[in-house]
Design a protein around this nucleic acid. Structure first.
Length: 259
DNA sequence: AGCACA
């Protein structure tokens, strides 16, 4: 008859009511800081892949990464708004990127590009290595209003420890983050029916200006490379033939080949 | 591990 819910002290003690989140205690920021990145990846490719993987969460203003000793394996992705950054942090935490799980935090400080847009940018010579709050001068009430209004309204309910939502992410992106490969005069064709021959592909692709040749890899059925004179021509062909069905079950998947 | 503004 008695409700046991009252002050049931000790009931939850065993499980540890406070889930120890290793997550940084940093406040939300438009910029996320990522480390544990695969250091073998070239900076340029890394930035492109980060851009590809994170743009699903909102507009990205900039991706920064450096190869210096102190900063390799790390990157900053600057979003247009805090909510995009928050979402990206939550959703991509631990994401296997080039075979290493991403570790994501909010950046410690505001990015220059944001500060510039803010009007609060101060050249770094001044704040070289010390904290930004130099002298604490007593200011008059300059109620200028909060920056950007409700920008900091955290959309997360604090529900950390949730399962990594890898299943919600596009599958191809886990192993091949560079989804939008850079333009290339060579196209990569996938999802071909096994019986596809080079001749069949030539009939399709030679309709487009600049066609040079089809190459198929015998040991790997279902894929082909098609070369054009330049990447404008290959782009036209890609747009024309992507999704084309040689059989009803096989819409062609056409992308730029990797270099 | 490591928080910059190439």
């Amino acid at each position: 008859m008695e409700n046991v819910g009252g002050a049931g002290a000790g009931a939850g003690a065993g499980a540890g009511t406070v889930t120890a989140t290793d997550t940084p205690s940093l406040p939300p920021n438009m910029t996320i800081y990522i480390n544990n990145l695969n250091e073998k990846i070239k900076i340029d490719e890394l930035k492109k892949s980060l851009n590809a993987v994170f743009s699903q969460f909102g507009k990205i203003l900039e991706v920064l990464a450096f190869k210096t000793l102190k900063h390799k394996g790390q990157a900053w992705v600057i979003f247009e708004d805090v909510s995009s950054a928050s979402e990206a942090l939550k959703r991509m935490q631990g994401f296997p990127f080039y075979e290493k799980p991403m570790r994501i935090q909010f950046a410690k400080t505001k990015s220059d590009i944001v500060a510039k847009a803010d009007g609060t940018f101060v050249p770094r010579e001044r704040r070289k290595k010390h904290d930004e709050r130099a002298d604490r001068k007593k200011r008059e009430h300059h109620h200028d209003g909060n920056h950007a209004g409700g920008g900091l309204s955290a959309a997360h309910g604090g529900a950390y420890g949730a399962t990594p939502p890898l299943s919600q992410l596009p599958l191809g992106v886990a192993k091949m983050p560079e989804a939008p490969a850079p333009p290339n005069n060579i196209l990569f064709v996938q999802n071909l029916p096994t019986e596809t021959t080079p001749m069949m592909l030539q009939m399709l692709f030679c309709q487009y200006t600049g066609f040079k040749e089809v190459r198929m890899v015998e040991t790997k059925p279902g894929i082909a490379f098609v070369e054009y004179g330049d990447e404008v021509q290959s782009t036209v062909a890609m747009q024309g033939l992507h999704g084309f069905k040689i059989t009803p079950q096989n819409p062609m998947h056409v992308t730029y080949a990797k270099k």
